[in-house]
């Protein structure tokens, strides 16, 4: 009895843990992909990219990801547009963090 129940429970738990991936309409832990959300996320990604650029630390394809997100939004592929915008936003944030960290830690690498 016990040996039959365990796999069934495990299967239920796995299904509960992955509804977003299966539905294909949302990225895990984020708002649903619609025109309004996408526009907001693209604007946030661009602001994040600009902050990284001002710090001289922009990553190579952040701008390209934003462009691709805008193109996906034009053809109303909201899911793809959202994913691209979120990736771009994260890149911008990580680049700003990197620049802030390096403004202090670079000295540790100087040959003494």
């Amino acid at each position: 009895m016990r040996s039959r129940v365990f796999p069934v429970l495990l299967g239920i738990l796995m299904l509960c843990a992955t509804p977003h991936r299966l539905s294909g309409t949302e990225t895990a832990g984020t708002a649903p992909a619609d025109a309004e959300t996408v526009a907001k996320e693209i604007a946030m990604a661009e602001a994040s990219r600009q902050r990284a650029a001002e710090a001289g630390a922009e990553w190579v394809d952040t701008g390209s990801l934003i462009q691709q997100a805008m193109q996906a939004a034009e053809v109303e592929d909201w899911q793809l547009a959202l994913e691209l915008a979120l990736r771009a936003k994260q890149q911008g944030e990580l680049a700003v963090e990197q620049a802030a960290r390096e403004s202090v830690t670079w000295r540790e690498r100087v040959v003494q």
Binding site: A57, W59, V60, Q91, Q98, E102, S103, W106, R107, R109, V110, V111
Partner: peptide, 22 residues
């Protein structure tokens, strides 16, 4: 220039010095 040389940058998080010094 010195700060640029020793600062990690990019998605791979490398400084010029990581490759050409260390």
């Amino acid at each position: 220039g010195k700060q640029f040389y020793y600062s990690k940058r990019g998605q791979l998080n490398f400084a010029c010095s990581d490759c050409h010094v260390t």
